[in-house]
Computed example of a mutant assay.
Amino acid sequence: MQIVPRVKPDHGTITFFLASGANRQMCQLATTFNTQKQAFSYLQKHRTEFERIARARLASGELEDGIVVLSML
């Protein structure tokens, strides 16, 4: 799997896609950072953990409006 980032304009929230073959699942990571750059850096640093958590939530059906919602570790 790979994470494909998509930056949104709301401060420390990062939207990214969890890719598995041809399937893409939208995920959002809420952080306490003030900038997108800081939040994205945090996502990259903890990428493996967030992939694992996102896959587990997707498998268990823990979605909010079709989106896997994550927060800081």
Rank of each mutant, 00 (worst) to 15 (best):
P9K: 11
A56T: 14
L58K: 11
M72G: 03
T15E: 14
S20T: 09
P9N: 09
R57S: 08
K45G: 04
I53F: 00
N23W: 10
A54W: 06
T13F: 01
K8C: 02
R57Q: 12
T48Q: 12
D65P: 09
T32W: 04
L29E: 01
Q36W: 01
Q2H: 15
K8Y: 01
A30S: 09
I3M: 08
K8F: 04
N23F: 15
A59M: 12
D65Q: 14
F33T: 02
I67M: 11
R24P: 11
D65G: 10
A30M: 05
F33P: 02
A56I: 09
T15K: 03
A22S: 15
T32M: 01
T35W: 03
F33W: 00
S71N: 10
S71M: 09
F16S: 00
R57E: 03
A56P: 07
L43Q: 05
R55G: 02
H11R: 08
T48M: 04
T15M: 08
E64S: 15
T31L: 04
I67L: 11
L18G: 09
I67T: 15
R47H: 09
S41T: 07
H11T: 03
H46K: 12
E62K: 14
R55Q: 07
M1C: 10
V68F: 02
Q25S: 11
Y42E: 03
H46L: 10
Q38W: 02
A59K: 14
Y42G: 00
L70C: 12
S41R: 08
I67A: 06
E64N: 14
M1K: 12
E49F: 12
V4M: 12
Y42I: 00
H46S: 05
R24I: 06
C27L: 06
G66V: 11
Q25T: 15
F50G: 02
M1G: 12
R57Y: 09
R57C: 06
I14N: 00
T32I: 01
V69W: 09
R55D: 04
L58Q: 08
V69Q: 14
V68M: 04
A22C: 06
T15F: 02
R52A: 08
E62M: 10
Q36L: 00
A56W: 01
